[in-house]
Amino acid sequence: MRNLFPALIVISYILIVFTGCNKADDQSASGTGVASGVAKIVFNNVVGSSSLNSTGDSLYTNSSGETFSVTKFKYYVSNFSLIKSDGATLTLPAAYYLIDQGGNTGSNRLISNIPVGSYKGIRFLIGVDSAKTVQGAQTGDLDPTYGMVWDWNTGYIFVKLEGLSASAGTVDSAFAYHVSGYRISNNTYALHWVDISFGTQPFVITTTGTPELHLKADLLEFFKNPYDLSISDNPIVTSSGSAAVSISNNYADMFMFDHIQN
């Protein structure tokens, strides 16, 4: 390990620089001399067709027929790229957003220095990549004071869902899902890339406006497809391993295109 470490740093660096660059004609957003603009990305949490109330006051039903309320729903999204209308990938500068609707860090972010142009899709990672995870104490959205880190088994909690359900069978009817897992070599890997197409509506970056991209995250997907997560069978998942990986496979497709405001 010790001797590998310098190599790992180099590899990590390469990974950071090239994450999301599986398309040959990748370009970086930080190019100089290119006219650029600002855009806003907004995440809206929903439960099926209604918007999510995460103050614990609304009751929802999951695919196992269990009724539950939600007190916390937070997640990290990172490593964004935009897909140009010609299909090329534009990697945005490394960014890690803790989306916490109604909480400290909120549900939207401004992204600046995006080259002007028309984009047809977006790609990002749910969670925090392994390269970043091994880099020590962080600031901003990755500040450990947000309670989205594990200390005994280092890692950012990619997605945290907590709430109450009579099905939980725990003392206070609480359920908690803290999903993480960045170690590629282990059977705990829970990172997922998301590719979202904007369909026929182009997302147009100009030097003047602040277009908004609205995405939604459907909490019902957390509980199903491919794994039926039953609160009564599994009320608490707060470590990495197969249950966490299964849940991550579920939420991998919870993000959807909502609308664009050019």
Binding site: V134, G136, A137, P144, V149, W152, T154
Partner: peptide
């Protein structure tokens, strides 16, 4: 389980 000397003290 802790992957960095900076984050270790959080535990």
């Amino acid at each position: 389980g802790s992957n960095h000397i900076e984050v270790q003290p959080i535990a």
